[in-house]
Nucleic acid binder design. Sequence first.
RNA 1: GGCGCGGUAGCCAAGUGGUAAGGCCGAGGUCUGCAAAACCUCUAUGCGUCGGUUCAAUUCCGACCCGCGCCUCCA
Length: 383
Amino acid sequence: MDDKTIRRSREEKRPLAEVTQQWTDKFHADCAALNCLPPHVEPTATGHICEQVDMIAQLEKKGHAYRAADGSVYFKVASFPEYGRLSHLKERELKLGTSLKPQTADADEKEDGSDFALWKAHKPDDGDVGWESPWGRGRPGWHIECSAMSKKHLGETIDLHTGGVDLLFPHHENEIAQSECCNGATFSKHWYHSEHLLVDGKKMSKSLGNLYTLDDLRAKGHTPMELRYTLLAGHPRKQLNFTLDSLHAAQKALATLRAYRATLPASGGDAAIFAPVFAALSDDLNTPGALGALFTIVNRGNAGVDLPAFDRVLFALGLKLDEPAAPKAEAPAEVVALAEQRWAAKKAKDFASADRLRGELAAAGWTMLDRKDGYSLEPAKKA
RNA sequence: GGCGCGGUAGCCAAGUGGUAAGGCCGAGGUCUGCAAAACCUCUAUGCGUCGGUUCAAUUCCGACCCGCGCCUCCA
């Protein structure tokens, strides 16, 4: 429900819900491809307007919020002494003259610069996006949805709240302020912030143009599993500099695991052999450590390991090995004809012809892979 | 300027007060006519720099250098 999405909806003359649904669908497809388990509940901000309004009303009643002249409602940060604890911000410590951004448009409406919007009054740019409320027509501020939906679906206090470090301030700080002031209870017992994925040494972002979508990677011949493995190879709490090279490393590592899995018996193993892997995962989600432990075991051979135990590890890591490394390409008829000739020549032990035909195939852009009982054709790797 | 994360082999990356997991690349080998695949072996006296503590530091402490992120309505 942010300005940008509303603007896009108006420009394309499509309902807001349709625009957001398009991205939601894309997100779901990518998550599925990456083998992420779907959440039990996926609430939407627009589906919880009442809950948000209710929460804002309570905050106002308890003196944590105030109405501005234009009909917007702001959270009064000064009313919550704990504010800033999560991000170690004792007080507003912004120093002028460095990277301070220009004052926001609603600066005049707020009593204090650190206050933030709970409810934004409707303005012409919003078009038909808006809901009626005790404060008039408008829409919720962008932090309150999380507080309201979390309360409704998970209760006043949750065990763990996760997110990227960029959300630490102000978003999570504001969530805490809203929820704790409204409910009078601890919002989240634990926080886990993941670091950024870096591309070319910078935070991946649309504005920098150093952004890859899953489809981009697929177009380059990589699989979603390779991406998943690559992300697993870095600690979630450390920045990971993503490179296309790392996808290649992932591809090889997955192939090794796939080949190893094929050697495993259906039963008779000792599940405890993988304890180090789970120990690493249990230790602050140390996924690189877990992969290291996994390969240490793999390198020792398959003694004591069976399929069910190995598959439990794969499940825990969310890795699926049954995916082909690259999409199969259909060779043109003339290429197949060459391949048939070479296979026949090879069978006849006419190796000179066979080698010549391999060369011709290569010139045509195809690599012929021999097996015991047949061959396959793959597009030649580009140099 | 404030707050936070990080600097470990060519690349990616764990980790510990007692002398460096793992993956990729590379090299050698086994096996296949060749190629590919698979498998085996090898590859950091060293963990940003300089000091300090210690019998012992990459691991603790201090200073410094470098990279990245956040610092308010973009979610």
